[in-house]
């Protein structure tokens, strides 16, 4: 497989049964976890995203050589076309931080619906970044831009206990918690990707509003450069009797 699977993904899957399993990668992004699941011998991976560019990237980057085991699905995670009780292992790697609380619960309900009665779930995400971390200023700007445009924030960092509680409400029992990254390296590439999100929001606004927003994002990225801050964690659940 050509795609480099990040260590975060490998570590999160290391103690999970992946081989021979039907998997659902919720929020496929650029396909890191999809690649990890396929490399670990998944029988089939449904890679779900609502972003057409992401879907194309995953197909192109990961589809090579495992096309028969990969199904890229363009759908909303609150209502997927997947059958009830059909998935052995659900993964949500870096998904929840892009889901505002209202969506989070709806997505949790849908993931629970498609999971088999003895299904497993892995949720990897960022802890709330420390208040004194410079990256929080960029994230705050991103959320401000999102609120102006969409009326909702773009990013939501949930403490592990909160995500554990949300999924517990849907019948998921926690099996283990692990730290994937400590600290999280926010590289120039990551910061630029966040600044790009701000620029996209800014582009939809009148220049008088959009231009200063974009300029602020640019200044912040230049000022921060790169930063190590916060942690990324992994929660593993199983469905059924607690």
């Amino acid at each position: 497989m050509a795609a480099d699977v990040p260590e975060t993904v490998t570590a999160a899957l290391a103690d999970r049964q992946v081989e021979g399993q039907v998997c659902l990668e919720a929020g496929a992004g650029v396909g890191n976890t999809t690649a990890g699941l396929l490399a670990a011998g998944a029988k089939r991976v449904y890679a779900v995203t609502n972003d057409a560019d992401h879907a194309a990237t995953v197909r192109e980057r990961v589809g090579d050589g495992s096309a028969d085991r990969l199904v890229v699905v363009e759908a909303d995670l609150r209502a997927t076309p997947l059958a009830t009780d059909s998935v052995d292992l659900v993964t949500a790697h870096g998904l929840c931080n892009v889901l505002p609380p209202a969506d989070l619960d709806a997505v949790a309900a849908e993931l629970t619906r498609v999971a088999k009665s003895d299904g497993r779930l892995v949720v990897d995400d960022y802890a709330v970044p420390p208040a004194d971390a410079a990256v929080t200023r960029l994230f705050a700007l991103e959320n401000a831009a999102a609120r102006v445009v969409d009326g909702r924030p773009a990013l939501a960092f949930y403490p592990p206990a909160v995500l554990a509680a949300v999924f517990a409400d849907h019948g998921w029992a926690i099996e283990r918690k692990a730290t994937l990254l400590d600290p999280v390296p926010w590289t120039e590439a990551h910061l630029n990707a966040h600044a790009d999100v701000v620029r996209e929001y800014a582009a939809t606004l009148p220049d008088s509003l959009g231009e200063p927003l974009a300029a602020m994002a640019e200044d912040l990225v230049a000022a921060i450069g790169s930063e190590r801050a916060g942690t990324m964690y992994s929660l593993a659940f199983r469905l059924g009797d607690v």
């Binding site: 990040p6 570590a11 992004g29 990237t57 990254l181 390296p185 590289t187 190590r228 990324m232």
Partner: peptide
């Protein structure tokens, strides 16, 4: 893992991404 992730993006062929 943090050190590996930090340099993994140095010459990554993958489009810029938000996440690790």
């Amino acid at each position: 893992r943090s050190l590996i992730e930090e340099v993994r993006h140095d010459d990554s062929p993958v489009p810029e991404q938000l996440h690790h």
